[in-house]
Design a protein around this nucleic acid. Sequence first.
RNA 1: GGCGCCAUCGUCUAUCGGCUAGGACACCGCCCUUUCAAGGCGGUAAGACGGGUUCGACUCCCGUUGGCGCUACCA
Length: 489
Amino acid sequence: MKTNETTSVRVRIAPSPTGFLHVGTARAALFNFLFARRHGGTFIVRIEDTDAQRSEKRFEDNIIEGFTWLGLTWDEGPDVGGPYGPYRQSERKDLYRTHLKLLLERDLAYHCFCTKEELEAQKNYMLANGIPPKYSGVCAGLGKDEVARRIADGALSVIRFRATAKKLAFGDGVKGKIEVDTELIGDFTIAKSVDEPLYNFTAAIDDELMRISHVIRGEDHISNTPKQILIQEALGFHTPHYAHLPLILGPDKSKLSKRHGAASILEYRDDGYLPEALANFLAFLGWHPGGEKEFYSLLELISQFDIAHVNKSNAVFNIQKLDWFNAHYIRQKSDDELCALCLPYLQKAGMIDASTDREKVKKIVALEKERLKKLSDIVPLSSFFFALPEYASEILVWKKSDAATTAKSLAASCAALEALDAPQFTEEAVKDALGAVASEFGNGAAYWPVRVALSGMEASPGPVEIAEVLGKDETIKRIRAGITRLNMI
RNA sequence: GGCGCCAUCGUCUAUCGGCUAGGACACCGCCCUUUCAAGGCGGUAAGACGGGUUCGACUCCCGUUGGCGCUACCA
């Protein structure tokens, strides 16, 4: 796709607020955003809410919130306005009505009175007889008077566009040249009535009126493109450059959808994924800047983005890779930032409240930082700090040790730690105290039981770090409980 | 069924005619190490198939097969 400096780049993401912001739309938005910013163009958000039955404001809000969370910014949209508004199709009815009437007057479109049942029957007949199914055209030749009479009689109708049969080809920025025979399309519907326009029609009108230069969208829209081009030609509109992105697939290789898991991008946020991780991951689904660098900030993505390098084939959404990106970005956070990010999860789990010592929480988060794949992992990983979990006494014994030795080493550790004055219960002091025990019993026989007694878990941060966070009293208490347990084995 | 799009490790990908096919995730092993994680090192693993074109094809062309998408009075 050529992007010379003289034609300004204007791209749009046109979500339909009939559901929460899903991954596919978010990725398409990201690519449009990247493309616009890369070329100093304009990024527009246009809400396609022509389907009044299915559109809901809460979905629009969810979509806008999702884009914002991802780090995207737009220049024109329903919330920020712009010179080509309004940016909600439901608020552009008059524009569509004008063009619809124009099409009707010029006989480029016509009223169709066929009922859904009739249409269904026609379709089944054609299918059964091996004929490519398309509108039969029974209403295509109705005279003006006949149409007026039927409408006056209250007959229900839809508006169909007269699709001229021809070989149509358009260049695609990703796929190359795409050719279709519009003969196979047939006269398609563009409105339920002059006040109820349908998707292919409104998209063609708005892309013209909003001066859209490039349409970047999922390849599930390839079959809509010739319809939109036909409408553009009938109305004397320009045809924007098209670029159809490969689809994002679920593990089963079918188009990613709600049934594959997260229904909304915001669910990823709530689950503890970082926007920079998701953006990095999503950008790499179907595109790659070349080279072996893996981590790209949004700014770096912008500077490298080239739509010519977008893949043609679909990509499977690999949650493990997302986790890896996320873990990386979590580790990049400062302790303060990460603590602030983890706080909501800890609070929600009831593990901390306003009275909890913030410095203690920060130490805990810092300790678990490199173990977090998602922010929400902080809850199961750190709960033992706040309340010792129930655990099997047997796990106190290190694999290369025995109960008797473990009891002795735990008692020694306990004594060594008790000898420390509470104010001097520093990481340094604890380390020296336990180090002395370790030099007598060996690292494994000394550290393992202390760590298990303190955490109640077979896997956790080291005993010195935990003890320092817990403080002398709690540390001694937990170790004594461990010793008691050992004596009962 | 019709039409369209696509085809490199299990997954995301590099390669734009010269490849001993590179990287990443995941997986396995080793190191580090009380455990886990992180980190370091190493390993298993790919050009769907068949024809062309060419000195030379993963790269170009054709066919086959397979996958996906679309086929609404949804978008």
